[in-house]
Amino acid sequence: MLSTAAGTASQDAMSIWEYANPKKFMQTSAWALPWVTGLAVVTLVTGLVWGFFFTPDDYRQGATVKIIYIHVPSAMMAINAWAMMLVTSMIWLVRRHHVSVLAAKAAAPIGVTMTLIALFTGAIWGQPMWGTWWAWDPRLTSFLILFLFYLGYIALWEAVEDPDTAADLTSVLCLVGSVFALLSRYAVLFWNQGLHQGASLSLDAEEHVADTYAWPLWVSMAGFVLLFVTLVLIRTRTEIRARRLRALEARERMA
């Protein structure tokens, strides 16, 4: 599983794996980055301004409900960032594409920030709603556990010197961690039933938010996705350049 295959792109010309070639990735991302960035800014501003200023106060929750436009999208991205890391880690383990694992490395700090935002906005929202800053509610607890998994993943990257060794070890950790994170989610549900309302946007849920709130929420979520893509692209480019710098320095030492 961990053998070093020659790290080149796939042979057939139109394959998606071609974008795993670092050179190709740098070219494509340089072209795509301004567009994605612009789109992210537009959707994010639209969603948040619409949500904050052009929706009525909730009859029960007042203005505090509006934190939903940050809380829900960041929570969503906290999970999706980990899912993306899982997929890119597996691609690295199977196909040995360096860009893939560097994208996972790049996504981790963004994911951990999203988790923190979700936790903090949750606390701020929870205070007026539940009368406490923190409750060991299953969902809050799960995010706290997710935060711990992110910390371990990032710490392992930092601790291992050799980049390929670090890539292999963090990928294995990401795989195993995903299984245990999922287990923890169910364990926590079993352990405490919780205060959270049901899924906010699920179509068949009994208590889901009204359409007036839902539309700006959808836009905000799209904005957060685009923001995440933008940040991952920027950070992956930085990681590739850092890696290149390392190689040049090593070459200089040898020459």
Binding site: T8, H98, A250
Partner: peptide, 9 residues
């Protein structure tokens, strides 16, 4: 070089 680190020289 075909390796990853050589890709941008």
């Amino acid at each position: 070089g075909g390796g990853f680190d050589e890709a941008f020289a």
